[in-house]
Design a protein around this nucleic acid. Structure first.
Lengths: 212, 212
DNA sequence: TAGATTGTTAATCGATTAACAATC
DNA sequence: TAGATTGTTAATCGATTAACAATC
């Protein structure tokens, strides 16, 4: 941030992945350009919001023309850091860890899984989506020899704090935490806490509303 | 809604699961009561916001005392519909479907998994967390004989629309969709679309910010 | 050039925070 | 009763929408 750009509101940042997805779809359909108005109808938001959102990062469009889909897609990818080649490790090779290791969207988005760790002797040595599950006690050695940007935490909450701290000490810059605990570190380590059952609860709330 | 209550903003509803989690923790620690101020410090929000949020649903506190933790916990559970005994089926017994079937938080929140369906002969008949995987072609028959409130969609996007429509036709009132496609139905069917890679992307964005 | 559509400023709306009277 | 803390109104802040001049 160079000081004369205003800080992008969190609510705008959260919308970026959705734009990215829709633009990816347009790209697949070979659509070359789109106006904020056409996009707003597809996405069910206002054209004004779309233009405002994009203009936080500088104008990507052209008056009288609209937006070049491929260009916009790449720019948003850039903003999100999808072209940085960030590497990930998964800590916890349980059901969720395995699901995520096999979830190919992560790769498609430019993230490279380089290691999976667990403490369970029964899973250590197994290969998941081409990546071997290693012994958690070898974490530090592994990270000395491999650049790891992001730690994905899919382990029981009682073990998550220690794992997170070891990752941070070994140089990880971001944590994607699926454990129940809400982690937070100082500003040098970005953290995103994901609670899988939250959407189920808000769904349940919505269901009660539509009953009435 | 009886008309003289104002509609609860979506942003407030989204915060309810987080309150519920924190109150659950307090309950475990045998803490009987808490003030909005004490809770605000734990949760890193303002006390004002907490009181405003709770007052959308009627006052749960008592002047000079604060909030009774257990009572508040149960009230929020009620609001979220966690005590309705909603049943779920999972469509798609792949990695993510299995992870969710084994994810015991869903049960803890009061949702009962009653069926898992797939088209793959290799997984049909297997038992996941005590529930047998059934042939997708038997979905309608199963739903005639069993009340199913929520369909959890963990299948490839090319199959998700058909599955969703079959569920809705068979009487499901809510869909929790993990597939890439964004589903939407008329107002009688609540839908929550979950995109697992979105938090990874926003994490990546945050990492770029803390670099600077 | 005329038409279309952005980028951006201004107006509106809604959410958050502050303040305090009510009351346990 | 005095102190604490809610419930609620009012003030502020920020996000969304509308409008339109700039310009391709």
């Amino acid at each position: 941030m160079n000081g004369n750009e205003k800080k992008v509101p969190a609510v705008v940042v959260k919308r970026l992945p959705r734009y990215y997805r829709y633009l990816g779809e347009l790209l697949k359909q070979d659509i070359k350009r789109i106006s904020s108005n056409a996009l707003s109808q597809k996405m069910n938001v206002t054209a004004s919001q779309i233009r405002q959102d994009f203009n936080y990062f500088g104008g990507f469009g052209q008056q009288g023309y609209g937006y070049n889909v491929e260009h916009l897609y790449n720019e948003i990818g850039d903003i999100l850091g999808l072209h940085d080649g960030d590497t990930t490790v998964i800590i916890g090779a349980g059901n969720l860890g395995r699901a995520i290791a096999n979830h190919n969207t992560f790769e498609k988005r430019g993230f490279k899984l380089v290691g999976i760790f667990d403490v369970d002797k029964n899973v250590i040595g197994k290969v998941i989506n081409g990546v071997e599950v290693m012994d958690m006690s070898h974490l530090e050695k592994f990270m000395e020899n491999n650049r790891v940007d992001i730690g994905i935490l899919t382990l029981p909450k009682k073990a998550v704090n220690e794992a997170a701290e070891r990752l941070v000490k070994s140089g990880v810059r971001g944590l994607l935490n699926f454990s129940y605990t809400e982690l937070s570190f100082d500003k040098n380590v970005a953290v995103e806490n994901v609670h899988l059952s939250d959407p189920l609860m808000t769904l349940s709330y919505k269901m009660k509303q539509s009953e009435e």
